[in-house]
């Protein structure tokens, strides 16, 4: 792994007197999509806020491109290469699409105004739908389009790392798919991202590495391929939500299938279930390699 572009070292943080993060460590390499998962209250969103600078770290350091940014204001961090796709999208509803993008490039334009035009052109190319709507007030667009605008607004500033905070929160399932399609497309261009997401199944389709938070500490960290999904399912208590590729879900389905139509006596019911449990590792490994294979990106 090359030098991390974003690094959190031994961070404690919280609100008021209540501590929420206990010695969090996280390192994100160039081009990596890092997923931060965990239950409600595990500290995901506090971690994001500490990186953004919205709440201070009590202890420890946050480094961006090797530079200590622990004491900087949020807007200064943006100027140094941090990008945000905030929770709930938070586009500026009364401003036009183009004005939203211009604001996204606020610090880029201050650093070097000549870089704005090519960056805007690249954005239009990447998001042709936004170009069609460039003079429209952002608040009048659909949720999916606003989500695309939020992503575009973060990317136009040419950030080193983009923090994507709960992109699916409050969106209809169909739009969630749109949003993740957008993020997948962006991911293939080598942008470094940190993704916090409740929708674990969707997140796992996107990330390269997983950091699992539990009660304010890092419970597990590693590449997606090494992730034991049954462990994840147990830790998150969401076995059924990880889709058909997960062992727990496959297991349950198999039991149901056998149990219902054949109407086996209760005593014999346990046997087929055990058999399925033994097969458990096969679909899981297949899924893992399948996921890992098409993700060969230049990093």
């Amino acid at each position: 792994m090359s030098e991390p572009v974003l690094e959190i070292e031994d961070v404690d943080a919280g609100f008021g007197a209540s501590q929420i993060l206990f010695g969090i460590n996280l390192a994100v390499a160039q081009g990596e999509i890092a997923g931060v998962l965990g239950l409600n209250g595990a500290g995901k969103s506090v971690t994001m806020k500490v990186i953004a600078g919205l709440i201070p770290a009590w202890k420890g350091a946050v480094r961006l491109n090797g530079r200590d940014i622990t004491g900087l204001a949020p807007e200064q961090r943006v100027g140094l290469g941090l990008g945000h796709v905030p929770q709930g999208r938070q586009v500026f509803p009364e401003l036009t699409v183009e004005e939203n993008l211009r604001l996204g490039a606020y610090t880029l334009r201050r650093r070097d105004k000549s870089r704005y035009a090519p960056s805007l052109a690249a954005t239009w190319e990447r998001f042709p739908k936004l170009y069609e709507r460039r003079r429209q007030a952002a608040g009048t667009m659909s949720g999916g389009e606003q989500a695309a605008l939020a992503v575009a607004r973060a990317l136009i500033n040419e950030p080193t790392v983009v923090l994507v905070d709960e992109p699916s929160a409050g969106l209809a399932p169909l739009i969630v798919r749109d949003v993740f399609d957008t993020l997948k497309q962006v991911a293939t261009t080598g942008v470094t991202m940190i993704l916090v997401e409740q929708n674990v199944a969707a997140a796992l389709q996107l990330v390269d590495t997983v950091t699992l938070l539990q009660t304010g500490t890092v419970a597990w960290h590693g590449p997606l391929a090494e992730l034991d999904r049954s462990m994840l399912a147990t830790r998150l208590g969401i076995g059924r939500m990880l889709g058909p590729s997960t062992a727990a879900a496959a297991n349950k389905r198999a039991v149901k299938k056998k149990a219902v139509p054949e109407k086996k006596p209760a005593a014999k019911k346990a046997a087929p279930a055990k058999k399925v449990a033994a097969k458990k590792t096969v679909p899981q490994k297949a899924a893992a390699t399948k996921k890992a294979a098409p993700r060969k990106r230049a990093t």
Binding site: E75, Q90, F92, G104, Y106, N157
Partner: peptide, 25 residues
């Protein structure tokens, strides 16, 4: 102007304005 747009943006959503780099103070 960029600053003026920042003023409008901060009026609509101060935290989002801060997260795009507008000096909200």
């Amino acid at each position: 102007t960029d600053f003026g747009l920042g003023v409008l943006a901060a009026a609509q959503d101060p935290s989002a304005a801060q997260l795009v780099g507008v000096p909200v103070n």
